[in-house]
Design a protein around this nucleic acid. Structure first.
Lengths: 289, 289
DNA sequence: CGTGAGCTTCCGTCATGCGGAAGTCAGCCT
DNA sequence: AGGCTGACTTCCGCATGACGGAAGCTCACG
């Protein structure tokens, strides 16, 4: 039989579509613009194939070519991205409230949703004189390392939670929680109090993050909102009422029943088995593992 | 001879990649979620092909499947879209200033860039009690019908401007400028005064839009910033100083030389766009990390 | 002027993407 | 019930169009 040519060891059997996605995949926060050859090398595709695919993507608007010949992601992708129901559409509803919160607290304010095992920031309002944080729109981080991620993890289904806990929890700073048992306890507390408090778990700086859940139509947690301040600048607890109030307003705007009842607990653990089956929040399934 | 099968009349000769893009293309602001069959019909692809492509896109994260089986654009696309240098990265630099402007003026504030013959909104801060406008992030509109678009058109190269003027200028409201000569005069005035003033040209409501250019590294106009208020609510002119000041601050942050000189006119067209082949004029990505 | 790196074009071959067809499943009408 | 429609999924043989090697092109550099 013929010797199969080298095949760069990792890539084999790709469909044409996967090749196209592979081209897009090589772009990242640290690689906003790349040359054709760089795209070719990183994607593992031959130069001629890359050339053709990049041409098609450019014609369509998915890639932009700058004057210097380098390629970057095109605005057509941004346009598409604005159509994500849980992304920028959610943002539209929440933004006015987030703006108010920012001005009331003078903190960085974030809105995030879950995607697979990650948290994705959907909005990020940075106060000018606040700690620098790593939360751009579209930014992706592991669930266990951020306040918003911990909220989303705490209120996810137990099966999913254990699935995440079973993976290796990456360490970002000395304070990142990497022990599953420790994290399990922290998450239980988040569920009980309705607020996550994370100190310097993602960046080494003295960042203090508070985060609360946002609920949608069937009181399912659909997103998390958080603020980040410089540790020690204010009493963290002092921010909780403002957060809770804003969260309730947004949840109401999102159609959460509980946000309309006259008095209700912020935590509101869904643990009460009585009554509606409500199908374990299987709203989005995880993909290939 | 073999009968060539029907070939649905319109679709012919598509590459595999174009088919994949065609799937993404069927989503729009009014079609956030679609069933597989709908995607198939709209894209003109057979059901089995659509099925396979949608599966690949879903595995990659470009599409999301909700519990009800409908598909929508996935967060992975939002993540990609956040990497557009002229898109969300530009937004990061400008956002703090835009926020200030919004609170100073209590108007809707927009940030927009040009893509082909359209203007794309990259940021949109909506004041709660203001006129409703059609400017979501990622929203796309013709250049001639919005304040920001007129600014971008006015400061584009003459050849490009004429190219746009030669196309049919779509009418949105009775006040939309659809006459090329009229538009040419308006644009000349925009260039001279450095500000575009558009009243109710996109939406029939009494919206008044003011827009100014933002400049980058070589004083090229790289974006436009605008505010929208209810016509008659305030004297339009009263907003110009605030706009100009903010524009200058942002231009400085973007590296525009003119924004550093002690006194300078808001207008000051660079007259000739092309010029030096010197490369890498773009790239204002700063922090992050 | 030689060299090398990046980009573009061309073309023969064969893997591979395509779509018809058959098989599920669920809802709806008679 | 029974049959019907419409949506989704799986399978497979065939023709096609995607692939990659190779050659040509354009710079920048020494």
């Amino acid at each position: 039989m013929t010797v199969t040519p080298i095949r760069t060891a990792k890539n084999d059997r790709m469909t044409a579509g996967q090749r196209m996605l592979a081209v897009l995949e090589v772009f990242g926060p640290d690689d906003l613009s790349l040359t054709l050859s760089e795209i070719s090398r990183r994607s593992g595709l031959t130069l001629s194939t890359t050339h053709r695919l990049v041409g098609e993507l450019r014609d369509w608007g998915a890639l932009d070519r700058a004057i210097d010949g380098r390629y970057s992601i095109g605005l057509r992708i941004l346009e598409l991205g604005s159509l994500t129901p849980r992304g920028l559409r959610l943002r539209e509803v929440a933004l006015p409230y987030l703006g108010d919160l920012q001005h009331a607290t003078n903190a960085n304010v974030h809105l995030a949703v879950r995607d697979g095992h990650d948290v994705i920031y959907v909005e990020s309002l940075l106060a000018r004189d606040c700690v620098r944080v790593l939360s751009r729109i579209g930014g992706r981080w592991p669930l266990h390392a951020t306040g918003t991620g911990q909220v989303l993890l705490a209120f996810a289904s137990p099966e999913f939670r254990e699935e995440v806990l079973a993976t290796k929890l990456r360490r970002f700073t000395p304070r990142t929680i990497t022990d599953p048992d420790k994290l399990r306890r922290v998450l239980a507390e988040v569920r009980q109090t309705g607020v996550a408090i994370a100190e310097g778990q993602l960046t080494p700086e003295d960042a203090l993050a508070l985060a609360v859940p946002l609920r949608g139509p069937k009181d399912h947690v659909v997103a998390a909102m958080g603020v980040t301040v410089k540790a020690g600048s204010v009493s963290p607890r002092a921010l909780v009422p403002a957060l809770a109030t804003t969260a309730r307003a947004i949840s109401r705007a999102l159609g959460a029943p509980s946000a309309n009842s006259p008095h209700t607990q912020t935590h509101g653990s869904p643990a009460h088995g009585g009554g509606h089956p409500s199908r374990a929040a299987e709203s989005y399934h995880v993909r290939s593992a």
